[in-house]
């Protein structure tokens, strides 16, 4: 019964206190950093959005002036102001991006889930674009969609002499080139989500349905896909989140052009805040973006966290 320290710590001394405080001490820097650089900065940007800052920040409040500017002539169909173009583009982009990614991802996941030989090989191929930056992806697609030497030339050389494909420089169609590149980059990721979901489904449910005589397509339509609902939700949230933040692809593919026909909120914000010396206006658009993301993410996170807590 040799306990050397037995009497040393009869009453909680200073060492003891420090030890109790240690975990907090260790995370305090992170908490401080988050408080300042996340929450403080959100507040700061919001403040700027209520000023009339142009090239340099000014701190006299002017009320909702910038927001009013954002939403004057705010007409979505047809879009009139530059901001409404950005919003409409975001709508078009996110709907197409999400729908296409989910269709491609889900179908490929289902096909990959058929005990495929070389599944790992296929999966590796489908997912590699996720490892690339949007800038690299954009550079590649910018070349592929090149109005003279890209797909247009390829199809023409295949014998369709008068084929034209000039979406990249067509202000009505350029937004779709961004969709094409984004879908190429992200659908593999959605596939991975769905594949994980499929692997999580209890095999015996499918066996039971088989015994009941259901055909394979029917099993998928009626049993498997409905049980993937949480995966659909996650996928939509993540893709929506990517959409709202999308900046890189637009910059490299079209720079928001031709004109500002492919502007999105993220590029809009950057253009006004950094290139056109309109800090407050840019800040106001950033605040709108932030609010949009939070409106989506907070309910989602809340239900996710609550879900896991209940499960325990």
């Amino acid at each position: 019964m040799q306990i050397p320290m037995r009497n040393k710590l009869q009453n909680p001394g200073i060492l003891h206190r420090i030890e109790n405080f240690l975990p907090k001490l260790v995370v305090i820097p992170t908490i401080a950093v988050a408080a300042v650089f996340i929450y403080g900065f959100i507040g700061w940007t919001t403040y700027i959005s209520f000023t009339d800052s142009r090239l340099l920040p000014k701190y006299e409040l002017v009320g909702f002036h910038q927001y009013v500017r954002l939403f004057t002539n705010f007409n979505l169909f047809p879009p009139e102001s530059r901001w409404s173009v950005a919003v409409v583009n975001l709508l078009i982009f996110s709907v197409l991006f999400i729908v296409l990614c989910i269709i491609i991802g889900l179908l490929l996941a289902i096909f990959l889930d058929q005990r495929i030989r070389g599944e790992g090989f296929f999966r590796t191929i489908y997912l590699y674009p996720m490892a690339l930056s949007f800038i690299v992806t954009g550079a590649a697609w910018r070349w592929i969609l090149n109005p003279d030497l890209g797909i247009e030339r390829l199809i023409q050389q295949l014998g369709f002499g008068d084929f034209t494909f000039r979406w990249l420089v067509d202000s009505n169609m350029a937004i779709y080139t961004i969709v094409i590149a984004a879908v190429w980059q992200s659908s593999g990721f959605v596939l991975a989500l769905f594949l994980a979901g499929l692997r999580g489904i209890d095999d015996s449910i499918i066996k039971a349905a088989k015994v009941d005589g259901a055909s394979l397509p029917r099993i998928y339509l009626r049993i498997v896909i409905p049980s993937l609902r949480p995966v659909f939700l996650s996928a939509v949230i993540i893709l929506l989140h990517i959409s709202i933040k999308s900046f890189d692809l637009v910059m490299v593919l079209t720079r928001g052009g031709p004109g500002f026909s492919t502007d999105m909120p993220a590029t809009f914000m950057y253009a006004f805040a950094f290139n056109r010396g309109s800090l407050a206006f840019g800040a106001a658009s950033a605040v709108i973006m932030f609010l949009a993301v939070m409106a989506i993410i907070i309910p989602y996170l809340y239900s996710e966290l609550r879900g896991t807590r209940n499960a325990r």
Binding site: I31, A34, F37, I42, W44, K245, F290, V293, I297
Partner: peptide, 20 residues
């Protein structure tokens, strides 16, 4: 505190560009 930190994974970084 952790959930507040977690929210940092989601913010569109446009909201911190100017102050940063």
């Amino acid at each position: 505190i952790f959930s507040f930190l977690l929210l940092g994974c989601f913010i569109p970084f446009q909201i911190i560009l100017l102050p940063m």
